[in-house]
């Protein structure tokens, strides 16, 4: 038996890395969509909405106009509600009519894709966007659904037994970071 240190946290992104990733994602979004017209940034709580706010701020800076953003709680659309303890809901605020717009969903970590599947369903009940794109800070693989991200801050190959923890200053009241804990050698 090889002794492992399951609680040993390995930091993979620090605050500077995260800032850089947000900037890069912002530019990639603008590049792909040519400009910010018709763009609506919608984050998935609890950290996706903070990231969406940051991207919106960066984009506003680049574009020289206010870019709106919102949040979309997907709890009621989850496919694993019966397997977890009941939980409270996070706020949903859709900034404007999304019909005919390009919605960029923003989340912190992409893994199975089930959260995004739920988000697509939830979005559908709010309107009919022209297109939906996906931006994530970390893509750690292990997809269980045919879903991929359009914009990725960092690809982070991990084992299933590892745990990826994203901390953001507002949500977590801590320095920005992405760490990996657990895993077996």
């Amino acid at each position: 038996m090889v002794a492992s240190a399951p609680n040993m946290a390995r930091q993979v992104l620090d605050a500077t890395d995260i800032k850089r990733a947000v900037t890069r994602i912002t530019h990639e979004i603008l590049e792909k969509n040519r400009n910010s017209d018709d763009l609506v940034l919608i984050g998935i709580p609890t950290r996706g909405d903070e990231l969406a706010a940051r991207i919106a701020a960066k984009m506003s800076e680049v574009e020289g106009k206010t870019i709106s953003f919102g949040s979309l709680d997907i709890t009621m659309y989850r496919d694993d509600l019966r397997m977890r303890p009941a939980r409270g809901l996070e706020p949903t605020s859709i900034p404007e009519d999304i019909d005919g717009k390009v919605v960029v969903l923003v989340d912190d970590v992409l893994m199975s894709g089930r959260t995004i599947r739920a988000a697509l369903d939830a979005l559908n009940d709010h309107g009919r966007p022209r297109a939906v794109q996906l931006a994530v800070l970390v893509d750690r693989g292990h997809r269980e659904l045919p879903i991929r991200a359009d914009f990725v801050g960092k690809n982070l190959p991990t084992s299933m037994s590892e745990r990826v923890q994203v901390r953001l200053s507002l949500t977590d009241d801590a320095d920005d970071s992405v760490t990996i804990t657990g895993g077996e050698e």
Partner: peptide
């Protein structure tokens, strides 16, 4: 009560139904 607060908004959406 907090959950109800969020659910109140459902009545104002185009689709007033959740798949939950």
């Amino acid at each position: 009560l907090d959950t109800a607060q969020e659910l109140l908004a459902v009545a104002e959406r185009p689709v007033k139904k959740l798949p939950t």
